[in-house]
């Protein structure tokens, strides 16, 4: 649970905004951050990139942001990555009241070996890796543990069947499939059919040529 200790992050206000200043900040090992919400003007700040990345890798949702000495609890709203997905380039934070309920996405962690996974060619597929939950800002779970040990072959586990920690309500669709044990099927190589067209079909047929009427006109 996140209640144990709220991670703290030191931020400094950014005076210069825009592409050039942002790039300069990133080059200097800083990460641009914006803090908004609660009908207060947004604050543009920057954090130490290393500290912020480490904090985010530990699945922090609620943080205590100290902007030039003024401390306010914030929720990590959005994280932007670079094009290769290897570096975090910007973080959105929303001001939060510690007594209000918030909707956050929490990572799922699978526990146990599915009983159906022992079958030949069986594997566990998990189309989603996060769930949306609603809970108190101080009660956000770091991760949701999902026991998949009872899953047999061709059985699925939906979001509604997951036991959530106390005080945490599910926001995602309860019918959402979280995990399934599937049997890998051999791909059938489509044989090059003799009658298969070498070119795709044209959606818009070429306009019918007015040759016949034109010929008639000539005549």
């Amino acid at each position: 649970m996140a209640t144990a200790a709220i991670p703290k992050i030191e931020l400094t206000k950014r005076t210069k905004l825009g592409k050039t200043a942002t790039l300069a900040d990133r080059r200097a090992g800083k990460m641009p951050v914006v803090i908004y919400g609660h009908k207060v003007d947004p604050v543009h700040a920057c954090a130490d990139a290393k500290a912020m990345t480490e904090m985010l890798h530990h699945h922090a949702h609620l943080v205590e942001a100290s902007v030039d000495g003024a401390v306010e609890p914030c929720l990590i709203k959005d994280v932007q990555w670079d094009h290769l997905g290897s570096k975090i380039i910007h973080v959105d934070m929303a001001r939060v009241d510690l007594n209000e309920k918030v909707t956050v996405t929490v990572e799922i962690k699978f526990v146990g070996e599915p009983k159906g996974a022992k079958a030949a060619g069986a594997f566990i597929s998990h189309p989603v890796s996060e769930l949306e939950v609603n809970c108190l800002a101080t009660n956000i779970p770091e991760e949701i543990l999902v026991d998949v040990s009872n899953l047999g072959v061709d059985e699925t586990l939906t979001a509604g069947e997951i036991k959530l920690p106390e005080g945490v309500e599910l926001e995602s669709d309860p019918e959402l499939i979280v995990a399934a044990v599937e049997i890998a099927q051999e791909e059938v190589e489509p044989e090059a059919a003799a009658d298969a067209p070498a070119e795709p079909e044209l959606i818009r047929k070429p306009a019918a040529t007015d040759e016949a009427p034109a010929d008639e006109k000539k005549k």
Binding site: H83, L84, G85, P127, E199, P200, E201, L202, I203, R204
Partner: peptide, 30 residues
């Protein structure tokens, strides 16, 4: 058999230019 569309609007396209980095389809999704 190599992939190709089933239906198209036009048979031919101009070559175009590929600029910048990927903005979509750039994370492991499935």
């Amino acid at each position: 058999m190599p992939l190709m569309p089933k239906r198209v609007i036009f048979r031919k396209q101009q070559r175009g230019k590929i600029r910048g980095n990927a903005t979509s389809g750039n994370y492991v999704a499935f």
